[in-house]
C-alpha cells in the first residue's frame, strides 16, 4: 500500500452504559482497525470505567460489551494507554481492570501486554504525537 500510515488515537472519556459513547467508540475502533492504520486507545477520566472487570449487565437488560475489548488484540490494536491520575481519582488501580494482550506472530504467538499505565503528562505527549485524535 502506497498510502502513508497514520497514527490514530481514540480518546475514551465516558463511562459505559450510561451513555452510548463507549460502545460507539469501540465499534469505530473495530471498523477503523480493518484499514491498516496505526491505532492506539487512551482511557482517561470516566473512560477508565469501561475496562473494569466483572461487568454483568443481565439485570439492566443491556448488551455487555466488556468482553469485546479482549478482541482488540486480534484487530492489531496493541497500544492501550490508561491514565494513572484518572484511576486514582476514582479509587481504582490497574488490578481492577481487564488484562488486555495481543499475540506477536513474529515471536511464536507470544502474548504481550497491550495496557500501559501513563501519567497525565505522558498522556499529553501521546496526544501531541498522534496524527489524528478521535474523541468519545
Amino acid at each position: 500500500m502506497s498510502e502513508t500510515i497514520k497514527n490514530f488515537l481514540y480518546l475514551n472519556r465516558r463511562a459505559p452504559y450510561g451513555t452510548i459513547y463507549a460502545w460507539e467508540s469501540l465499534e469505530v475502533v473495530l471498523i477503523g482497525a480493518a484499514f491498516d492504520q496505526d491505532v492506539s486507545l487512551a482511557f482517561l477520566d470516566d473512560g477508565v470505567f469501561q475496562l473494569t472487570k466483572g461487568q454483568d449487565t443481565a439485570a439492566v437488560g443491556m448488551k455487555n460489551f466488556s468482553p469485546t475489548y479482549a478482541a482488540l488484540g486480534d484487530y492489531e490494536v496493541k497500544k492501550v494507554y490508561i491514565e494513572k491520575e484518572s484511576l486514582e481519582e476514582r479509587g481504582l488501580s490497574l488490578d481492577d481492570l481487564q488484562h488486555l494482550t495481543w499475540e506477536d506472530e513474529d515471536d511464536d504467538y507470544a502474548e504481550k501486554d497491550s495496557i500501559h499505565l501513563v501519567t497525565r503528562a505522558e498522556m499529553a505527549a501521546i496526544m501531541d504525537g498522534a496524527d489524528v485524535v478521535f474523541s468519545f
Binding site: L30, A34, K63, P67, T68, A70, A71, D74, Y109
Partner: peptide
C-alpha cells in the same frame, strides 16, 4: 460467545490459519 462480536474477515482469516 467469547467476544460478543462477529470477527472481521481479516481477523477470521488469521485465526483460521492459526
Amino acid at each position: 460467545e467469547e467476544y460478543q462480536i462477529a470477527p472481521a474477515v481479516r481477523v477470521l482469516t488469521k485465526a483460521v490459519g492459526k
